[in-house]
Amino acid sequence: MKPNQIRGAAKAIDFDRIVQDFKGLDPNDPGLWPTAPKVAVFIGLLVATLAAAWWFDWRDQMETLAQHEAEEITLREQWVTKKRLAVNLDEHKRQLEEIDRQFGALLRQLPNRAEMDSLLAEINQAGLGRGLQFDLFKPGADVIKDFYAEMPIDIRVLGGYHDLGAFAGDVAKMSRIVTLNDIAVEGTRDGRLKLEAKAVTYRYLDEEELAAHKQAAQKKAGERK
C-alpha cells in the first residue's frame, strides 16, 4: 500500500467517533451498544476464554502430552535395546556357556577341605625340592568368603637367591591357586637369604559350610536391624 493510500485509510477511520462510542455505555443493555464496543467486548471475552481454557485445562493436557512423549522415547529405546539383545541372543548364550566353563575350570583349581593337607604338603615339598630350609610353616585360620575360604600360611625359608626365585615360580605354577603376599627378603650371616611371606591358598566351601555361612550372615543381618 502506498503512503497516500495509508493516509487516506487513516482519515477514513473516525477515531473521535470511536472514542465517543465507548462513552456513556449502558451495562444493563449491551444490545444497544455501538459496533466498536461490541467488537471490543467480544475480543476481550474471546481472549479471556482462551486464557481460562489454557490455565484450567489445556496446560495440564500439554504437560501430559509432554510426559507421554518422553515415555514414548524411553519405550522406543527399550525396544531397540531388547531387539538388539534378541538378535544377539545366540551369541550371548555362547558367551554365557564360555563363562560357565571358565568358572568351572577356576573352581576346579580350588581344593576342598579334604584336599588341603595334600596341598600344604605340596607347597612344603616345593621348597624342599629347591634345597630351601623352612624355619616357619604355619597355616592360619580360614577366612570365610561367599563361596570359598582363604587359608593364610606364614612361611620363612632360607636359601640362595636363585633357589628362592625358583621356589616362587614353582608355587605360581601349581595346579591349585597359591599366592605369595607381604614378601620380605633379607640376608643372613652365613651368606644366604631369608624370605618371609604370607602364602594364601584357597578352597571352596562344601554344602555344610555354605549353609552355616549363610545362616551366620542372616543372623548378623538380623542383629543389625
Rank of each mutant, 00 (worst) to 15 (best):
P111Q: 05
F42N: 12
D90E: 13
E115I: 00
L107V: 10
D100M: 07
L106C: 03
D100L: 10
Q102P: 00
R101D: 08
A48H: 02
P34Q: 11
R108I: 04
A86P: 00
E97R: 11
A52L: 11
G44V: 13
L45M: 12
V87N: 05
N112K: 03
L32S: 13
H92I: 08
N112F: 00
A86V: 00
L32W: 00
A86T: 02
G31I: 05
E77P: 00
P30R: 09
W55H: 14
Q102N: 03
T64Y: 11
D117G: 08
R108C: 05
W79I: 07
F56G: 03
S118L: 09
L107K: 14
Q61N: 11
A86M: 07
I99S: 07
Q109C: 07
T74C: 00
D29A: 12
L119Q: 14
I73R: 15
E71H: 04
L96S: 09
A53T: 06
I73D: 10
A53R: 10
I73L: 13
R59Y: 14
W33S: 02
M62Q: 15
T81L: 12
V87Y: 04
R101F: 09
R84W: 00
A70V: 01
L65P: 01
Q95H: 03
E69P: 03
I99F: 10
R113A: 06
D117L: 12
Q67F: 04
L65S: 13
V80L: 01
A40E: 03
T74E: 13
I99A: 12
R76L: 04
E71G: 01
L45V: 12
R94Y: 01
V41R: 13
A121R: 13
A121K: 10
I43H: 12
E98G: 05
R108P: 05
W55C: 02
L120P: 05
V87R: 09
A105Q: 15
K83Y: 05
Q78S: 11
A70Q: 11
L107F: 09
R113Y: 05
N88C: 00
F103M: 15
E71N: 10
F103R: 15
R108M: 13
F42S: 15
R76H: 05
L65T: 15
L119Y: 03
Q95A: 08
A48Q: 09
L32G: 08
V39H: 02
K83P: 00
K38Y: 05
L119T: 04
T49W: 15
E69Y: 04
T74H: 04
R76P: 01
W55E: 09
K83V: 04
P30L: 03
P111K: 04
Q102A: 05
A52P: 02
L50D: 08
K82H: 10
A121G: 06
D57Q: 10
R84I: 00
V39N: 06
N112E: 06
T49H: 07
A70T: 07
V39T: 02
V47M: 08
V80Y: 02
L65I: 11
E97D: 08
Q78N: 14
A53G: 09
M116W: 01
R84L: 01
